[in-house]
Amino acid sequence: MPTDIAPGFVDPVHESQTTFRAVLDALAEPGTIRPIAGVATAPAPLAPTAAAVVATLCDFETTVWRDEALATPAVDAWVAFHTGAPRVADPREAGFAIVAAGETAPGWETFRLGADIDPSTSTTVVLQVAGFGEGRRYRLSGPGIETTREIAILGAPADLAARGAENRALFPRGIDLILASPTAVVGLPRTTRIEEIA
């Protein structure tokens, strides 16, 4: 391994399995907070949790896009080495997108939204946030939620609810969102209704 690239998972088989199950549970039950260990050695500003999600899901068969804030040689080299995923410059070609922070997140419509005939080709957006349990509060409903579920997110885009509504209107097309805090992930798939609690 080249010395200038930080290590990835120590035990790839089992760490990627536990990370996957956390992401699966997060998307299956939107708004539940799923702690994951993350890859502590991931180069900043790539969050250890986001790095774990990317290492778990991306490989040479997926395309990856990252925003400007993450466009450092260390991050690019880490993602390329540990996943082998080709990086794309156009978010419309992204299977996965990594976004550094909610404040600077591009509009969801700039990503690949899929087609009615094959909506599963849309982008999965991994969005780094500052934390859960504090910040703006949201009431969620939809598949995966028995009635409603409340969650507070620090560092989500200010217009998260409006973005969600626009994304939901495209159903079955639309992006799926994995929020990655420093310690956990939360899923907001395209089916989730997001209402901000004033």
Binding site: V23, L57, D59, T124, G144, P189, R190
Partner: peptide
Amino acid sequence: KRMIRRAILKAVAI
């Protein structure tokens, strides 16, 4: 496994 996991996540989302 990664390929199947990606499909499962999209299946859950739709």
